[in-house]
Amino acid sequence: MTKLTTSANPAVDTVENMPPLPPFTLETAKAKVQAAEDAWNSRNPDKVSLAYTVDSEWRNRSEFIKGRNQIREFLTRKWNAELDYRLKKTLWSFTENRISVKFEYEYHTDSGQWYRAYGNENWEFAPNGQMQRREASINDVPIQESDRKFRWER
């Protein structure tokens, strides 16, 4: 990551570049998707929120979120409720500054019920590589723990 010194967009002033930067190629779009998957699997709201512009706009299911602070609060709430969260993202399509992904993730609630969530996201990026818009549609399906696909060593 490198510091930006100037920007035409005040929302990205004095923030860091988040490579790969647009315009995307197949290789850089795949790398961006993998970086997002790795970050979200860290379940670290402070770290993950830095990938978004300070005024980033989200639609996550039926929730509308505006700005990095609300993103951090949302992610904290999410990962406090979705325990042992594990995500897999796959590139669906891309253009110069937009990427679409399909994804699935698994988690369990504090009652022990496991879920697999399926969804699609559309992302739009600022020139510095931070995401400025995220639209997510997600469906949850209850599963048995024995049906989990994503297992990892702790």
Rank of each mutant, 00 (worst) to 15 (best):
K3D: 03
T5L: 14
A8G: 14
P10R: 13
P10F: 12
V12A: 10
V12C: 04
E16G: 01
L21G: 01
L21W: 05
F24A: 06
L26N: 11
V33T: 10
A35K: 12
E37F: 02
E37G: 09
N41M: 06
N41L: 07
P45E: 01
K47F: 06
K47R: 10
V54I: 15
F64V: 14
K66W: 07
R72T: 08
E73Y: 06
F74T: 08
R77T: 09
W79N: 06
A81S: 13
L87N: 12
K88W: 07
T90G: 02
L91H: 06
W92F: 15
S93P: 02
F94C: 10
T95C: 10
E96C: 07
N97T: 05
F103D: 03
Y107D: 00
T109Y: 00
G112N: 04
Y115S: 07
Y115A: 02
R116M: 11
A117Q: 00
A117K: 00
N120A: 13
N122C: 08
W123A: 01
A126N: 11
Q130K: 10
R133G: 07
A136K: 02
N139E: 15
E145G: 09
R148W: 01
K149G: 00
F150W: 07
W152V: 10
W152C: 03
W152G: 13
E153F: 12
E153H: 13
